[in-house]
Each structure stands twice: as C-alpha cells, then as structure tokens.
C-alpha cells in the first residue's frame, strides 16, 4: 500500500531546511557517527581508496610519458608539475566523495527513505553531515598514500600563501557543489528506478570538463571556454590549480565566487527537484 497515494491522511512534508543555514549540532552529530563508523572499517576504506588512487596514477603516467616524448613538457606541464597536479587530485577526489545517485536509487527503490522522512530534517542535510564527518578519517588514511606517491613521482610545488588558503576553502566549496548536484541527480530515482545511464553521462561530462581527466590547459580552447560556464571545473580543476597552478589573485578569488554561485544554484535546484520528487514517493508498508 502506498502512503503517498493514500492522500487524505498524508503526513506533513518534512521541514525544508537549507543545507547552508547552520544546523551545526546536526552536522557535528552526523560527523561523529561517521568518524566512529568509518574508523571501524579501515580495510574497507583502504580498498576503496587504493582503487581510487589507481585513476590519477594512470593519468599521471600517461601524461608524463607524453611530456617526456614532447621534450619535457606538454601544455606547460612538466613531469613534476603533472605529479603535483595528480597528487593533489587524490586529495580533492577524496574530499569529493559524496552520497551518489546510486545511493539514492537504493534508498528509494527499497523504501528506506520512509524512516528518514520521519526526521524533522531535509535528508540531504544528514548526507552532507555524514560525508563531511567521514573526511577526517579519509584524510588520515590518505596521508601515507600521498607520501608514497610523492616519493615515487617527485612533484614540483610552487604554491603561494594565498593559493594555499584558497585551496583550503575551495575544498569545502567543491564538496558542496558536488554533493548538491549529485543529490539532484539522485532525486531522479523518484521517477525512474535506474539512474545508472544518467549518472554515467554526468561522470563523462565531469571527466572531460572538470580537470579530473587532464589539466584543463591541455584541452582544446572551446572545451576550456565551455567549462567556465559549467559547475564541473570548480569541483576539480580549480581547487587543484589553486595549489599547484600559478593562478593570479584575480583568478583565485574569481574561482571562489564561481563556487559560491554554483552552491547557490545547486541548493535551489535540489530544493525545487525535491519539491516535485517527494510528491511521487511511495513505499511498501510506508
């Protein structure tokens, strides 16, 4: 029997609380749960991370090979610069792990959302808090990997103090943009039970337009221009380049503004989609 369809006794919709508006206690509680939970599964966390580190190492090797063949550098990147780019990439990628549309698919298909709807909270707030709390564990586990990669691939850094500061702030921005966008995508599972192909399309766009696959400087000019008007670049390329690229002060601060813009757009989008999506929810015994 579907609860959503039995409309006369439908419970009040959950209070919509902006994920950006504090709720500090909830975040702290969710974060503590995440830390306690993830610390238990160190082996699982490491497997996940090692699988993920393979991706940048492959790109790093491929592009270092190209650079070596082209007389030491390609698109302004030397082997050392590529190493710096992709080692910082591993941290940014870890920070960018968010609740995926597959998670939403599972949550909605199996009716798990019912319990969450009883909480007086926007479910995305709980996801944001939980994954944010996971990050300290992730960063701790990441340190030895970064050290190993640095010893093997000899990165060349030339970061400015402002670059470092902007990098730190932009990590949070990247996390929020990616969380909000993937939540909106995940909400599509209110309409269809298989989100896979749509998510794949998103990932393909992200690979090519964010600097995840290759520094944007190596892309054709029209791709670079296109990327400036899309959210992807601000979740990968921008934070990495803030630390390793020689961005001007203008570019650094402009990037943060762009991030803020996409956070606002993402928040509005997720709330609008949620508004329409939740009306379609029905669960077995819900």
């Amino acid at each position: 029997m579907s609860a959503g369809a039995a409309s006369s006794a439908r419970p009040a919709p959950p209070r919509l609380v902006s994920p950006l508006r504090g709720l500090f206690d909830v975040y702290v509680a969710e974060a503590r749960i995440a830390i306690a939970e993830q610390i238990q599964y160190r082996v699982a966390n490491y497997m996940f991370m090692l699988g993920m580190v393979a991706e940048p190492v492959i790109y790093l090797v491929v592009w270092s090979t190209v650079a070596a063949q082209q007389g030491g550098s390609v698109g302004g990147y030397t082997a050392g610069a590529f190493a710096a780019y992709y080692i910082v990439w591993t941290l940014v990628r870890n920070i960018n792990i968010v609740f995926t549309p597959y998670g939403w698919e599972w949550r909605i298909r199996e009716g798990r959302l019912s319990a969450q709807l009883l909480h007086p909270l926007f479910p995305i707030v709980e996801d944001l808090g939980f994954f944010l709390g996971w990050k300290p564990v992730v960063v701790l586990l990441w340190l030895p990997i970064a050290l190993f990669l640095s010893l093997v691939f000899h990165p060349v850094f030339s970061a400015t103090p402002l670059g470092i500061a902007v990098f730190a702030v932009s990590l949070l921005g990247a996390y929020l943009i990616r969380s909000l966008n993937q939540s909106s995508l995940g909400l599509i599972t209110f309409w269809t039970t298989r989100v896979g192909p749509i998510f794949q399309l998103y990932i393909a766009a992200e690979l090519l337009l964010s600097g995840r696959l290759v520094p944007m400087a190596l892309m054709p000019i029209w791709v670079q221009n296109l990327a400036n008007f899309l959210p992807f670049r601000w979740t990968f390329g921008f934070p990495i380049e803030a630390l390793v690229g020689n961005l001007t002060t203008e570019q650094l601060l402009g990037g943060l503004v762009a991030q803020l813009f996409w956070i606002v757009v993402g928040s509005i989008l997720v709330r609008v989609v949620w508004h329409f999506a939740i009306q379609r929810y029905s669960a077995v015994s819900g």
């Binding site: 966390n45 699988g51 993920m52």
Partner: peptide
C-alpha cells in the same frame, strides 16, 4: 569495497 578496488 573490493569491487571498487578491482574496478580502479
């Protein structure tokens, strides 16, 4: 996570 490890 073994599946992710292998995929990676």
């Amino acid at each position: 996570e073994i599946a992710e490890l292998f995929q990676g």
